[in-house]
Design a protein around this nucleic acid. Structure first.
Lengths: 102, 102
DNA sequence: TAAATGATACGACGATCATCGAACTTTGTG
DNA sequence: CACAAAGTTCGATGATCGTCGTATCATTTA
């Protein structure tokens, strides 16, 4: 049961660029890209508050960058790399290349 | 005599992505990329006001995307494609590919 | 010198943003 | 049932944003 998200064809470039323009969100995306298995939201960006993290994940999800689904008490996240790569080839690669995961 | 702008090494990814997240600015960048010779600011995005255009060009210049210099009563603009490509390879190409100049 | 041209400066406006804390919901577990 | 864990919701706050109109400045030209 996946949460609502835009279809691949509806992913808007302005929304994607705006979502990636925030360092915290870019860090989350970089961590998602580097991790093999999906991880719960709480394991990302521990320096910020829970509510702020919820906000950032919603922005990422509504922009089409991230897919989310519930699993127990956690909410798992996955980078929609295939969709983004198909719609905006090279964009995510170039951004990730300049975004350290640390 | 060129107006103040960040050096290549100081171009910030957040600023670049934020600058490109606005459709009007992306359109200006696309037009700049498509035009061979530099053009005055006034020849871009005729649908918006002069003051708004000035604002957009300042955002683009401070982000490092555009270089500007005065020439008579006009202000000319040039896309800093070499600098952006060197600092964030592939980024501008992928964005321009999805941004129609029309 | 006076007029015209091209762009900037200065508020101002509503909108959106990132962040927070406190209260709440949902799910799993003793 | 009671408790804990993980997220969400709901204001609220201060900041920034895109846009505008008007006034102003700099430069060229008549």
């Amino acid at each position: 049961m996946t949460l609502e998200r835009p279809d691949r064809d509806e992913i808007d470039l302005s929304a994607v660029l705006h979502a990636l323009s925030d360092p915290q969100r870019r860090r989350i995306v970089a961590e998602l890209a580097a991790s093999e298995v999906p991880r719960p939201c709480g394991s990302f960006a521990p320096a910020i508050t829970k509510s702020t993290r919820t906000h950032h994940f919603r922005v990422l999800r509504e922009a089409g960058l991230v897919e989310q689904w519930k699993e127990g008490t956690s909410k798992m996240s996955r980078l929609r790399r295939d969709d983004i790569d198909a719609r905006y080839p090279g964009l995510l690669d170039s951004v990730l290349e300049s975004t350290p995961v640390g």
